[in-house]
Write a protein that binds this DNA or RNA. Structure first.
Lengths: 330, 330
DNA sequence: TTGTACGCGTTATCAC
DNA sequence: GTGATAACGCGTACAA
């Protein structure tokens, strides 16, 4: 390319970067022609090597099986592309030990920053300097030891809306089913918010929490039976589910028990997957603004990359309660 | 790093690459210590720039909203990581015009090869040399003008299994609902296979095809009503759905019509999403071996990267028919 | 066995 | 205005 236009590579570089300034019309035209002729594009790799920036954003996701993660990923990816960044994806597959490995791998490719939706617990704990000095934004799962920007659903508000809706609908015995807390901030926050809601409605409303793993269908069934039993005394009972995966488990349990949403048990779940309207009478849900969360996270990070200073920001986005048959009155 | 061990960088390079040969114990130890002390890792970027290989695989997906794509992505990503490759993801968001752009962007980062689950139609048509001479493997959607490896479900066999099951179950009026063909090979192949199945069962069984877009709920409802009308004359009717997205539309239509799977209409769908067991009496499905497809695609590509020669391969993986209530007899 | 010099494709800093 | 030149961090001849 250098010689294709008969000029030095420095001139070519100038043409591409500050094309407005410092160019004689004669040479500018020559370079422009050569660029067009060769369909020339500067190598991002070499640019990264020299200039130090890669226009790459590393996105680490705890579990790509989770539709929430995918939805966020999608929003983030869109925003990144619009801003001229490419996304390098790393899926942890819920394997905690690879968190550090993932960051190092991505850092090796000189990613300009990280979007992290990670496990946030245990040994692989990521401290600030593991990021190799690059900015990061945390999504959904907060991390005590790290002061970076944080984007998430407004969990307390969402839980309040869900509980409030159920209580208004006449439900008095609530069971919040969550994946095992394990120190994951979003799970802890939702569980705590559930407790607050119950406390706020004392003593009319009673609540319990059940931690559900994937292999405990018997325990889950038992928990639902116990809940229903408490409801016998004229008090209606409802389940709150912590995310779409738990919702799936609860729906399976209901099928096993031969029960129906909105009849034996009311239901509201966090996350509003596309299939929620199709199960039973339709599942009520707190829809997360996943696309906005992803977008916001990416935007947030890109602002930092452009030099924005200031203390870590916390962006809590509101959920939207979608009422369907599963939480119907009577 | 060069000076940290008090040696030249060439020595360091030798230590990392051919550590067995050509090393004096004295210096080897010095370098090893320095490497450990600095937690030194060679920059993949610089390696790619000089050596020409990046250990990066570009994965282009037509629409990350499609759970099929995600499942494949997951399998591919796993296989890539196991082989020491990193995945760069590019989502087209069904925007046809970005196919070329995606490939160029990825090629700019020196990806060693491509895994393509692309649109395969229209203007952005990708010819072999758009790949910048790098190997590629096509997933799910075949591409006439390109002879690369191809991995996919065995569509004819899967369709045969689905139709055979329905016919055995006494269904005589079949409706295959697919997304608009638009020259997408997998849709065409399934539709053609459906035609073959109907032909094979002539004249006992009748079949029609309906192309469903997202915004045609009225047309879809009408198609289902027409199907049911044909069934009146004592012939049972069933719907076959071309993928999970169509299945969602069909399920919505059934809800609108107040009909029930397995009663008014039988049903079998391609793809077996996790929610399939939870809708109505459970949706029968042809489960695609998505994980294997992704894995196979990645493996396939990595073999090529390791120098495997030979003509393009076609790897067709078998689906698995999962029978649930929606296709039940009577 | 080890160090030197060069190239990979850019950008930035000087001279001209 | 523009062309050499160093540097980014690595691999690899080639020389020592």
């Amino acid at each position: 390319m250098a010689k294709e236009a008969g000029v030095s590579k420095a001139t070519v570089s100038r043409f591409l970067n500050h094309r407005d300034r410092l160019l004689s019309d004669d040479i500018a035209a020559r370079v422009e022609a050569a660029v067009a002729r060769l369909a020339y594009t500067p190598s991002p790799m070499a640019q990264a090597l020299s200039h130090g920036r890669s226009r790459l954003i590393g996105l680490i996701v705890a579990d790509i099986t989770n539709p929430y993660s995918v939805a966020v990923l999608r929003g983030a990816e869109k925003a990144c592309q619009e801003a001229g960044y490419l996304v390098m994806l790393f899926n942890l597959g819920n394997d905690i030990d690879r968190e550090r490995e993932a960051i190092d791998a991505l850092a090796g490719y000189q990613v300009d920053g990280f979007i992290l939706n990670t496990l946030g617990r245990g040994a692989g704990l990521v401290d600030a300097d593991a990021l190799h000095g690059r900015p990061a934004v945390l999504v959904d799962r907060r991390h005590d030891g790290m002061h970076t920007d944080f984007v998430s659903l407004d969990n307390p508000a969402a839980m309040k809306a869900a509980c409030g809706h159920l209580v208004e609908g006449g439900y008095r015995e609530l069971l919040y089913i969550t994946e095992p807390l394990q120190g994951v901030s979003s799970r802890r926050e939702r569980t705590a918010a559930f407790g607050d809601c119950i406390a706020a409605h004392q003593p009319r409303v009673a609540g319990e929490v059940f931690e559900s793993t994937g292999e405990d269908s018997d325990a889950l069934d038992a928990a639902l039976r116990a809940l229903r039993k408490r409801a016998r005394s004229g008090r209606r009972a409802a389940v709150l589910s912590g995310n779409a995966i738990v919702t799936l488990r609860v729906a399976s349990a209901m099928a096993r028990l031969g029960w129906h949403f909105g009849v034996e048990l009311g239901f509201v779940g966090f996350d509003d997957p596309e299939w929620a309207p199709l199960i039973g009478p339709g599942l009520s849900a707190v829809a997360q603004p996943t696309d906005a969360i992803g977008r916001t996270a990416a935007t947030c990070l890109i602002e930092r990359l452009r030099g924005l200073e200031g203390p870590p920001r916390q962006l809590l986005l509101p959920g939207e309660l979608v009422v369907r048959g599963s939480s119907g009155a009577a």
